[in-house]
Amino acid sequence: MNTTYDFSGRVAFVTGAASGIGRANALAFARAGAQVALADLSADGLEETARLITADGGQALTLTCDVTSEDDVQAAVDRTVARFGRLDAAFNNAGVEQPVQSAADTAKDDWDRILSVSLTGMFLCAKAEIRQMLQQDGGGAIVNVSSGAGVKGFKGQAAYAAAKHGVIGFTRSAALDHAADGIRLNALCPGIIDTEMIRRFGDSRPGGREGLIADEPVGRLGKPEEIASAVLWLCSDDAAFTTGTALVVDGGQTL
C-alpha cells in the first residue's frame, strides 16, 4: 500500500489483528509511523503480525484479548497506554461470520455468538477507547467495522446483518455524543474481501469463491490493503471534518 499519511508519534489500537483485514491495517499504521497495539485471541497470529511490523522497523505490542470481556478490553487499552503513553487511533475490526441459514433456522447460540463479538465487542472496545481519549489532549479517531450487510439485507445472514446494522447505529450516535470532545467515530463497510473468513464463508454457500466474485461488479474480490487505505484516511487529519459516516468500500456490491 502506498500512503502519504504520517502517524509518527501516534498510537493505534487494532482488534482482530492476527490475520486478514486487521493484520493489513496494523501493518499500514506501522508503516505510516504509528506505534501499534495488536489485540486478538490468537496468540500465534499476533506474534506473526508483530514480527512483520518489527522486521520493517516498527513498534508493536501484542495483547491476547477477548473483545466480549469488558475486563479484557479495558486491560488491553490500559496496557497500550502504559506502554506507549496515549491512544490516538483505533480500528475495531474483530468479528465472526454466520453460516448461511434462514432467519427461522438461525440458532440462538449463533445469534448470541455473532452479536457478542461483532456488536457488543465493538461497543466495549469503543467505550474503553473513548474514555481514554477523553483523558488526553488531542482527542482521537475510531473506526468500527460494519459491512455491506450493515447497509442492506443479505439472504441467509439475518444475525450477521443485525450486528453490522447495529455497528452503524452505535457509531453514528456515539459520534454525536463526542463530536465536541474532538473524538471522531466512523464505520467502515467492506465488501467481499479476500480473507480467510471470506474463504470459509464461500465454502459454505452455493457457488463458492466464483459465486462471491460474481457478486462484485468490479469482477474481483477486494484486498485487505484496500480496506487499510480507507481506515488510515478516516484516522488521518485529512478526515478531520468526517465523523458519523458509514464509508462503503465494496467494489459496487451494494449498489
Score class of each variant (00 low, 15 high):
Asp194Gly: 04
Ala187Phe: 13
Leu212Asp: 05
Phe201Thr: 09
Gly222Asp: 05
Cys189Tyr: 11
Ile213Thr: 10
Asp181Tyr: 06
Arg184Thr: 01
Asn186Ala: 09
Gly191His: 02
Glu225Trp: 08
Gly211Gln: 13
Val231Tyr: 14
Pro206Glu: 15
Gly208Asp: 05
Ile227Leu: 15
Met197His: 08
Ala214Ser: 13
Asp215Val: 01
Ile192Arg: 04
Arg220Pro: 12
Arg209Leu: 14
Ile213Cys: 11
Glu196Ala: 12
Gly211Asp: 13
Ser204His: 03
Gly182Phe: 06
Ile193Lys: 00
Asp215Cys: 01
Ser204Val: 02
Ile227Gln: 12
Leu188Arg: 09
Ser204Pro: 02
Pro217Asp: 13
Leu212Lys: 02
Lys223Arg: 15
Asp181Gln: 12
Thr195Tyr: 11
Gly182Ser: 08
Gly191Ser: 06
Gly207Arg: 06
Pro224Phe: 13
Leu212Gly: 03
Glu216Asp: 11
Gly191Asp: 03
Asn186Met: 03
Leu185Glu: 04
Pro217Glu: 15
Met197Ser: 06
Gly202Ile: 00
Glu216Trp: 02
Asp181Leu: 04
Ala214Pro: 02
Gly208Arg: 01
Lys223Trp: 09
Val218Ser: 12
Gly191Val: 05
Ile213Asp: 08
Arg209Phe: 13
Arg205Tyr: 10
Pro190Ser: 01
Gly222Ile: 07
Val231Lys: 05
Pro224Trp: 11
Pro190Val: 03
Asp215Leu: 11
Glu225Asp: 15
Arg220Met: 13
Val218Asp: 10
Leu188Cys: 12
Ile183Gly: 01
Glu216Val: 15
Arg200Lys: 09
Ile213His: 08
Phe201Gly: 06
Glu210Met: 01
Arg184Ser: 04
Gly211Ser: 14
Val231Ser: 08
Gly207Ala: 08
Pro206Lys: 05
Ser204Leu: 07
Ile198Asp: 00
Leu185Phe: 04
Met197Leu: 10
Glu225Lys: 09
Ile227Trp: 12
Gly207Ser: 09
Leu188His: 13
Gly222Met: 01
Ile193Asn: 00
Asn186Gln: 07
Thr195Glu: 09
Thr195Trp: 08
Pro217Leu: 15
Pro190Lys: 01
Leu212Ala: 09
Leu188Tyr: 12
Cys189Val: 11
Ser229Ala: 15
Asp203Lys: 02
Gly208His: 03
Ala214Tyr: 10
Pro206Trp: 04
Ala230Gly: 14
Ile183Leu: 03
Arg209Thr: 13
Gly208Asn: 00
Leu221Lys: 11
Leu212Met: 15
Gly208Met: 03
Ile193Gln: 03
Ser204Met: 09
Arg199Glu: 15
Gly222Val: 03
Cys189Ala: 13
Phe201Leu: 12
Lys223Pro: 03
Ala214Glu: 13
Glu196Phe: 05
Ile213Met: 10
Ile183Met: 01
Pro190Asn: 04
Val218His: 12
Arg220His: 14
Leu221Ala: 14
Gly207Leu: 07
Phe201Asp: 10
Pro190Glu: 04
Gly222Pro: 06
Asp181Phe: 07
Lys223Cys: 01
Glu226Cys: 06
Lys223Gln: 14
Leu185Met: 02
Gly219Lys: 14
Gly202Lys: 02
Gly191Tyr: 02
Glu226Pro: 02
Val231Glu: 11
Pro217Lys: 14
Met197Asp: 00
Gly191Cys: 06
Lys223Ser: 11
